[in-house]
Amino acid sequence: MLKEFGPNIWIAEGPTVTAAAGFHYPTRMAVIRLTNGDVVVWSPTALTDDLRSEVETLGAVRYLIPPNSLHHAFLGEWQRAYPDAKIYAPPGLREKRKDIRFDGDISDGPIAAWAGEIDLAIMWGNRITTEVVFFHRESGTAIFTDLIQQFPRGWFRGWRALVARLDLMVASEPSVPRKFRVAFTDRRAARESLQRILTWPTDKVVIAHGPLISNDGQAFLRRAFRWLAD
C-alpha cells in the first residue's frame, strides 16, 4: 500500500471521495520519516488496518498535517488512532473543524521539529483555499494538494466532463485549474509565495489529484505557474 517515492518519503493511494456538485476525487497521502525516526503524515487518507500497520513500521506517528482547508475528511479518525500526534492547522481549517484538537497553526515560518528537513510556503491570496506547499529536502520533493491537478480523460462524465475540460482539470499536463487561477485575487501575495517555492531545488513533485512527477520538478512547476509568474 505504501510506495517509496524517494529516501524517507512514501505515498499511499486512498479511496475516491465525492466533493461539491458530485465531482469525484481520488485521494493520496504522503508519509515522511524524519532523521530522528518520527513520522509525518501529510493529508491523511482513510485509515485501514493494513495502512496503519505499514505506517507504524516506519516509526512513531508524531505529526498529522492537513495541507489546506479542503483536505481534512479523515483527520478525525487519525487523531483518534494517534491521540499524541500533533496537528497543525492550515489557514481556515481551525474554524471548520471544531472537533479537532489542534496543537498549533501553520504560518510562514518553519515548524521547529522539522527545521532543516521540511520547508513550507503558504500560497496566500486565494479565495477558495489557502494551501500550504511543503518541500522535503532529502528527496527533493515538493508536495502540492489542489493547486495543481490532472485527471485522466474519461474520469468525469456528462456535464462534469465539460466543466473539467474548461477548467483545465484534464489538460495534457498537470496544471492549475482555471477556478483557482481566478480565485487568486491577491496576485502579488501569490507571486511572493511562488517565488519562495521556486527557490527550492525541486526534483520530484507530489500532487493529490494527478500523476506523480519523478524528475525535472522545478521545470514542471515553472510551466504550471507560468500564468502567475508572467
Rank of each mutant, 00 (worst) to 15 (best):
Asp146Thr: 15
Leu147Gln: 07
Asp103His: 15
Phe134Asp: 15
Phe102Glu: 05
Asp84Glu: 01
Gly158Asn: 02
Ile143Gln: 01
Ser107Gly: 12
Phe135His: 15
Phe151Asn: 02
Asp146Asn: 06
Ala81Asp: 07
Gln79Met: 14
Arg80Gly: 09
Trp78Cys: 03
Phe102Gly: 02
Gln79Ala: 06
Asp105Cys: 06
Ala115Ile: 11
Arg137Lys: 13
Arg153Ile: 05
Asn126Pro: 02
Pro83Cys: 11
Lys98Cys: 03
Trp114Tyr: 12
Ile87Gly: 03
Gly76Arg: 15
Val163Ala: 12
Gln150Asp: 01
Arg137Ser: 03
Gly140Ile: 00
Phe74Ala: 03
Leu93Ser: 12
Tyr82Trp: 03
Arg153Thr: 05
Glu77Leu: 11
Pro152Ser: 04
Gly104Tyr: 03
Ala112Cys: 08
Lys86Pro: 03
Arg127Trp: 13
Gly109His: 07
Ile111Leu: 14
His136Asp: 14
Leu147His: 05
Val132Cys: 04
Gly125Asn: 03
Ala81Met: 13
Ala115Phe: 06
Ala81Gln: 11
Ala161Lys: 09
Asp119Arg: 14
Thr145Gln: 00
Arg160Ala: 05
Asp108Tyr: 08
Arg165Lys: 11
Met123Ser: 05
Ile122Asp: 02
Val133Ile: 15
Pro91Trp: 06
Phe135Gly: 13
Arg80Leu: 13
Ala112Lys: 13
Leu166Thr: 01
Asp103Leu: 09
Ile106Lys: 12
Met123Gln: 10
